Amino acid sequence: MPEEKNYEKERKLPFVSIIISTYNRAHYIKITIDSFLNQCYPPDLYEIIICDNNSTDHTKQVIEEYKNSKDGTRIRYLFEKRQGMHFARNYAAKKSCGDLLYFADDDVIADRNLLSELVKVFEDKRVGCASGKILPKWECVPPKWVEKYCNNSLLSLNDLGDATKISRNDLGVWGCHEAVRRDVFFEAGGFHLDLVGNGPGIGDGETGMNDDIKHLGYRLAYVGTSITYHMIPARRMTQTYLNKRYEYNGNSHSYSEYRKKPFTKKELPKRIYVYIKEFILKEISMIERWRRGKISLRFLLAEFYYYTARIRYDIQIAFNERFRKLVEYSDWL
């Protein structure tokens, strides 16, 4: 498409740092890297940083294989021994060179036009961060209930159509497909506490950072022509994964709420009472929705994991001083 290439030459394109945090995904990471090496974006205007978050598999060997290839100089390997996705992403951001910092997960496949389409929205100086369309790449045929009810944030998917949208509110900007202006990223303080190893997340990660960006006065954007594919393995199409995801959401919401409005030990019984009441009312409502064919019964069990996670998290905040300080801590950079 010659017209597109000429147009790109006329524009002053930003240098982009693609940052991929990885943990024990040696079997996926090469697919992800190759998709970013294949971008329709000037090769001298982006770098790929792989931040190994203390992997115990052969991730490092996979990255080293690129050193002797023609693309070896475009890939940088970093090692972050502090366990936690927030540590890896923030550390890599500090070591990056980009005007734009683009964050991806280690299990995505980027469309060739991902970068060239995504950078356009940053011509609007109001935009602080942006994402795009995140579609599933099913590794096997998904169960009907997964395809019907989980084709959304539960699997970090997002499809708001092909148009570009700019808003004061979060449009589903997930860290597996997110670009942030460099100065905005550091002004906002980077990613919040997030996933640690393979356990459920214990913070609000990119959601918290996006909220900080919004409060700085910037807009959030969605670019429907910037597409990535999220690889969904069979283990994510199970009740076990759904429960874990709801547990993560419970932890994340308790984390966010406490940081906005701290509570005391005396208030804990009231909070637990509210959670139990909410849980019962929600279960009754969900049974009605199930009767009308609007939801799967699987989500009744998942809600139990959500509310028990909230209760456990609040108890830890109230009685575990070390944990409470972790939640209150803000300088993750």
Rank of each mutant, 00 (worst) to 15 (best):
Met286Ile: 15
Leu326Gly: 05
Leu157Glu: 06
Ser285Asp: 09
Asn90Val: 07
Ser330Cys: 04
Ser69Ala: 03
Ser131His: 05
Leu118Gln: 11
Leu160Lys: 12
Phe87Ser: 02
Gly189Gln: 07
Tyr28Ala: 02
Lys95Ser: 11
Gly161Asp: 13
Ile19Met: 11
Leu300Met: 14
Lys165Leu: 10
Pro233Trp: 02
Ala88Lys: 05
Asp99Cys: 03
Lys148Asp: 07
Leu154Gly: 01
Pro2Asn: 14
Glu187Pro: 00
Thr225Trp: 01
Ala93Phe: 04
Phe36Met: 09
Leu37Trp: 08
Ser153Phe: 12
Val196Asp: 14
Asp107Val: 08
Tyr305Met: 04
Ala302Val: 02
Gly293Val: 04
Lys266Glu: 13
Ile227Pro: 03
Asp211Tyr: 15
Thr32Trp: 07
Leu100Lys: 06
Phe323His: 13
Ile227Thr: 15
Ile48Asp: 09
Ile134Asn: 01
Asp194Trp: 09
Arg89Leu: 13
Asp159Asn: 11
Thr59Asp: 04
Asn152Pro: 02
Arg181Ala: 05
Arg25Tyr: 02
Gly208Ala: 11
His230Thr: 12
Lys137Glu: 15
Glu247Gly: 08
Cys129Asp: 05
His177Gly: 00
Arg82Asn: 15
Ile19Gly: 14
Cys140Tyr: 04
Arg74Phe: 09
Cys129Trp: 01
Lys282Ile: 00
Pro200Gly: 08
Ile202Gln: 15
Leu154Cys: 08
Ala221His: 09
Glu288Ile: 02
Tyr229His: 10
Leu333Ala: 03
Asp71Cys: 03
Met1Ser: 14
Lys165Gln: 14
Asp106His: 02
Ile280Ala: 08
Ile49Ala: 06
Phe319Tyr: 13
Lys12Gly: 00
Ser153Asn: 10
Val146Pro: 02
Lys125His: 14
Lys70Tyr: 07
Glu206Gly: 00
Gln39Ile: 06
Phe319Gly: 03
Gly293Asp: 07
Asp159Leu: 05
Asp170Pro: 11
Arg324Leu: 05
Met1Asp: 13
Arg11Val: 06
Thr56Tyr: 02
Thr238His: 13
Asp52Leu: 09
Glu267Lys: 07
Ser156Trp: 10
Gly197Gln: 10
Lys165Phe: 12
Phe263Cys: 04
Arg11Lys: 13
Lys144Asn: 10
Lys325His: 08
Arg310Tyr: 07
Ala163Val: 07
Ser156Asp: 11
Phe186Met: 13
Ile295Val: 09
Arg298Val: 00
Leu216Glu: 06
Ser131Gln: 01
Lys81Asn: 12
Gln239Gly: 08
Gly189Val: 09
Ile317Trp: 01
Tyr313Ile: 00
Lys133Ser: 10
His253Glu: 15
Ala110Val: 13
Arg291Tyr: 08
Tyr23Arg: 12
Lys94Asp: 04
Phe304Ser: 06
Lys165Cys: 14
Phe122Arg: 00
Ser55Lys: 10
Arg74Ala: 14
Glu64Asn: 12
Thr56Cys: 01
Gly98Trp: 03
Glu303Leu: 14
Ile276Met: 12
Gly98Phe: 06
Cys140Asp: 12
Asp194Gln: 01
Glu8Ser: 14
Ala26Cys: 02
Lys214Ser: 11
Arg235His: 05
Phe186Arg: 06
Leu78Ala: 07
Thr56Glu: 11
Val274Glu: 08
Pro269Ile: 04
